[in-house]
Design a protein around this nucleic acid. Structure first.
Lengths: 248, 248
DNA sequence: ATCATAATGTTATAATTCTCACAAAAGTTC
DNA sequence: GAACTTTTGTGAGAATTATAACATTATGAT
């Protein structure tokens, strides 16, 4: 499909260039621009869902939005997300105003940012780009970002300075995520550099809270970063009132 | 209009938070979310065109992309932005593939990110959140971010680690911006911490290029960070082919 | 309380977009 | 070049979205 120089491939390139600056073009404008029918534009988009997005009549560049969500969906459709949010609500109860907290990367803890009340002063440390974006607009939050080289897979930064910075911070609560968790084996994640950050943070923080939705329980990923016993609490969407304290 | 705590104002806040990371929500989803009719959502959007955008049935955060008024595509809207872009085009000629470059903060150099060809491998160092966001999606760019505390005024991070990191990097080209520039006095910016980063970068980089639109010339801001002579070139939107080399 | 005004909801109608099936054109293979 | 596959175009009906007018409900002031 779509060989390197084919008409279709050329259209895609042209179109991507046109949308590069984050402009949205109406499908009729695109059709005129590329001198093809609207139907063809529609098909092009359907066939390259990773490059282009389609939003109620308009062609939009991908990458401007989160790859999974948006576009054709109402948010009600996303059950998993709701679980994550409820887990975050529970996690937020471990945080007090004026404290310094760490927020891990991943799709779970992103939800937490919006749940932080606007009148709650906090210092928040993070190392994920999408988390930082959201935090940046919070009025009473002092945002501290760990720098380094960007890892697209998890939207995080990592480098030796990051580790050094963590050591120099006084973190009250660390809210950690995991791609897999098992009471016997512990918490695992997919990337080695993530694990390094997590371990370093957990070594400094006064309280370590693991925040996961229950779909993660029983799963195992490549890098183990903490045993179950090293968490002060494990919070899930089921932790409505009583939180599952560690059974030690 | 919409007093601080009014129902309308509250809706707007909630909605903006929901859209914060660049999600697009269908109008029906928004209506359910805010528990109002779709008509009200439509009116809310119409009344706050600077905060929210509306794109063929979907509510989108403004700033993510500028929807052109349906059907007609004139992009002749923003002249200043066009000037900045042309300056960036000129600046880009100082950059070669495989090099390590620094991109300063500000509205000018943001334009440069989109102008980087997708097939041009680069390592890019930055310290502005919005610059990082855009760079994150570039396929052949290795992104290095300087961490620290977030300064909303310029969307930048700053801290001692940032300065230390700069010193440890090998930067070929530094693309610098300024809020004010004058051949006699030099380049100035509005924030002290910005100036510190700029100075440190300029001390390390092999080539220092100042990228400004001509509206900045003759203006003066609070912090001087470099004399005119310390730049290897000053690039503006008028630098179409011949670049105004420093006149020393 | 009463009036005036702003905000919201509802409905009907107009306009637009979506989808599908099929036709036409272009490109491949033998 | 004939048969086949892929790509593109067209049009009609279904579905969705936009708009305006009017009804209803809140909100504020006197």
């Amino acid at each position: 499909m779509a060989k390197a120089g084919s008409a279709k491939a050329q259209r895609m390139e042209r179109l991507q260039a046109e949308l590069a600056q984050g402009r949205a073009l109406h499908i009729s404008a695109v059709a005129k621009l590329l001198d093809v029918s609207e139907m063809t534009v529609r098909r092009d988009i359907q066939q390259n869902p990773d490059k282009l997005g389609y939003l109620g009549g308009y062609v939009v560049p991908r990458g401007m939005f989160e790859p999974e969500n948006s576009y054709t969906l109402d948010m009600a459709a996303d059950q998993q997300r709701d679980a994550k949010r409820r887990a975050c609500e529970a996690a937020l109860r471990y945080v007090k105003a004026e404290e310094t907290i760490f927020i891990d990367c991943g799709t779970t803890l992103i939800e937490l940012v919006d749940l932080i009340p606007n009148d709650m002063p906090l210092t928040v440390v993070c190392y994920a780009l999408n988390v930082a974006e959201r935090l940046a607009h919070k009025p009473n939050v002092t945002l501290v970002m760990l720098g380094g080289v960007y890892y697209p897979a998890s939207a995080t930064f990592f480098g030796p300075e990051a580790l050094a910075t963590i050591a120099s911070l006084g973190i009250n609560v660390a809210l950690l995520s995991a791609a897999g968790f098992d009471w016997a084996r512990g918490a695992t994640c997919a990337h080695f550099h993530e694990a390094e950050i997590k371990r370093k943070v957990m070594a400094t923080a006064s309280r370590n809270i693991l925040v996961i939705d229950t779909s993660k329980v029983g799963r195992l990923r490549s890098v183990l970063f903490a045993e179950s016993s090293s968490f002060d609490a494990v919070v899930t969407e089921r932790s409505e009132d009583e939180t599952s304290q560690r059974s030690t």
